Amino acid sequence: MTPGATTEPFDDLLVLIGRLTYVWTNTESLLIHLIAGLSRTDKETATVIFLTLNTTRARVDLVERLAKLDRTPDAERKRVLDLTHEFSKLAALRNHYAHSIYSFDEEKGEVRTIMMRIADRKQDIRVGKTRAIDAEAIAEIEDNIARIASLNMRFWGIIRAFSYPV
Rank of each mutant, 00 (worst) to 15 (best):
G18E: 06
V63A: 05
T6L: 12
E8Q: 11
D120N: 07
S103A: 08
V63P: 02
A67W: 08
T52E: 14
W24V: 02
F155G: 04
D120C: 03
E86D: 12
F87I: 00
P3K: 14
V127M: 06
I138D: 05
K122T: 00
N144S: 15
R154T: 11
Y164Q: 06
A75N: 09
A91P: 05
I17N: 11
T47R: 09
V48P: 09
D120M: 08
R40S: 11
D120E: 09
T56D: 01
T47M: 14
D105G: 06
T55I: 04
E106P: 05
I138H: 08
M116G: 12
V15Q: 14
G4Q: 12
R59D: 00
H96G: 07
A46Y: 04
W156H: 09
N144Q: 11
S88V: 03
T113D: 03
I32Q: 10
I159C: 07
R71M: 07
I145E: 08
S29L: 05
T25Q: 13
E28S: 00
L81Q: 06
R94P: 03
R40Q: 13
R71Y: 02
G37A: 06
R65D: 14
K68I: 05
E142D: 04
F162E: 11
V166S: 15
G37L: 03
H99T: 04
